Amino acid sequence: MKTCIPGFFLLVCLCLSVKAQQLSPVEGSWVGTLAISGIKLRLVTHIHTEANGYKATMDSPDQGAKDIPIDIVTFQNDSLTLIMNRLGAVYKGLYRKDSVLIQGLFTQNGHSFPLVMQKSEKGITVNRPQLPLRPFPYKEEDVIYENPSTHTKLAGTLTLPQTGTAFPVVILISGSGPQDRDETLFAHKPFLVLSDYLTKQGFAVLRVDDRGVGKSTGSFSTATSADFAEDVKAGIAYLKTRKEINPRKIGLIGLVKEV
């Protein structure tokens, strides 16, 4: 038994050495930042090898997207190509041994942007300290009311200060495109943040899922500006039925809609 140990140890070392030589330099997690019209989006690409080649996924933490599939991965002569059919995007980069980074272009819908990726073991932690966390120091109630002109049921959240009565109230109105009650965009929730602030200042706040979004019924794509205006009027009518609300102090805060 003792005479076999040196040979076995040598075999293990040899296998580990061969495996180390076979590891691809692009295997691992790579972090880079896209700059698009003044907006910076961080991307994390995870690459690992399999028996039949490479497999990879991409995260976009600033957009709240994770494990985006990368359909085709090739790495030859220090050139890396990533093809994402679902996004209509392609990344082509050159691996630089001297600085251990990949430098290339990210192309989507005919537009190309420089993207330099560096290897990272830590990944990215997204911190959004502005998002309010429960329990809130005020009342929060899910509500549903109807736009009688189209029989559309609109679902939303009404927040009320913890104490007092006859509150002034604000209705938050979304901008272009179908939006939920928090105006969620790239993991940001601006209407939730605004509602939290206003309610802490003594205002009641109503924020609503657009028709056809979330728990609201109806169709967003076939609605007109007049329909959306009627939805707001339905919200005003509903608030006037609430005993906690001062019916003479109902205000609107809205984002610009494209026309």
Rank of each mutant, 00 (worst) to 15 (best):
I5A: 14
P6S: 14
G7V: 13
L10C: 12
L11E: 07
C13W: 11
L16D: 00
A20N: 11
L23T: 09
G32P: 05
T33H: 07
T33Q: 13
A35H: 13
A35E: 15
I39L: 10
V44N: 03
E50Y: 02
A51Y: 02
A56G: 03
P61D: 15
P61Q: 14
D67W: 13
I68Y: 06
I70L: 09
D71H: 12
V73R: 01
L80R: 00
T81Y: 03
I83A: 07
G93D: 02
R96Q: 15
T107Y: 04
G110E: 08
S112I: 05
S112V: 03
K119L: 11
R128C: 12
Q130S: 14
L131Y: 08
R134F: 06
P135H: 12
E140A: 12
E140H: 05
V143W: 03
H151A: 15
K153S: 07
P161S: 13
G164D: 04
F167A: 03
V169E: 01
V169A: 01
I171C: 01
G175E: 05
A187N: 12
A187G: 09
H188V: 10
P190T: 10
S195P: 04
D196A: 10
Y197K: 14
Q201L: 14
Q201N: 09
F203A: 01
L206I: 02
D210N: 11
T222W: 04
A223G: 11
S225R: 14
V232E: 03
A234S: 15
Y238H: 11
Y238V: 03
R242K: 14
K243H: 15
I245D: 06
I250N: 05
I250R: 07
L252W: 09
G254P: 08
V259F: 10
